[in-house]
Structure formats: C-alpha cells, structure tokens
Amino acid sequence: MNQALAELGRFAEPSLYILASLADGPKHGYAIMTDVEAISGQPLGPGTLYGALARMEKRGLIEALEPVDRRRPYRITGLGATTLRHQLEGLAGFTRLGLDRLRGASR
C-alpha cells in the first residue's frame, strides 16, 4: 500500500476507491458514493465516506470546490493523482506477478 494511503488506516481502501472515482472529474458526495459502490461492488456508508473525505482533504489528496446548491463537489489534486497512479501501478505489477505464477504452476 502506498505510504500516503497506508497512513489512512481503515480508511485506506475507501480512499483508494474515492480517488479512482474522482479521477475522471469532480463529484459531490452522493455521486462519489454511488460510483464507489459500482466500482467496488460493496456499499459505502455515509460515515465512512465523510471520514475518508476529511482525511484526504486534510492530506491534500483531494480539494473541495465551491458548493453547487447544497452539494459540494470534490476534485482530485495533483498529489492525489500521483498517489492513485503509484498505487494502481503497484497493484498492476502485483496482479501480473500473481497471474504469471499461477500460469507457471498450472503447467
């Protein structure tokens, strides 16, 4: 796990999904929640969502934009994008390694 995400403890995994959700543009809380649930296939509680948002905002991984009506969109920052890229590249390498070994074992 990337250091910036690992520091988030139990919020690390939701935060990774949130960063992935924001990678294609700003979203408000409800849109993030539904998008993360579609990505992960698991429900995201409102307390966990805002616990993760507060931590990510504090660490500069995301930033809040001006509210539209009562909905405040969040945007991924440069640091957040770098963190997400490193994490996904690490996971991709891990995935390739694991699949290669599985293929080797099945021969």
Binding site: H28, G29, Y30, M33, T34, G45, P46, L49, Y50, L53, A54, P67, D69, R70, R71, R72
Partner: peptide, 15 residues
C-alpha cells in the same frame, strides 16, 4: 464543515 452536504446525501439516499 460537512453537515449540510451530509444532510443532502442522506435525503437523497436514506441509510
């Protein structure tokens, strides 16, 4: 900081 948007989220999607 967060109550207004969380209230809006809960109104849109009651938990």
């Amino acid at each position: 900081r967060y109550a207004a948007e969380l209230r809006d989220l809960l109104a849109a999607r009651p938990p």
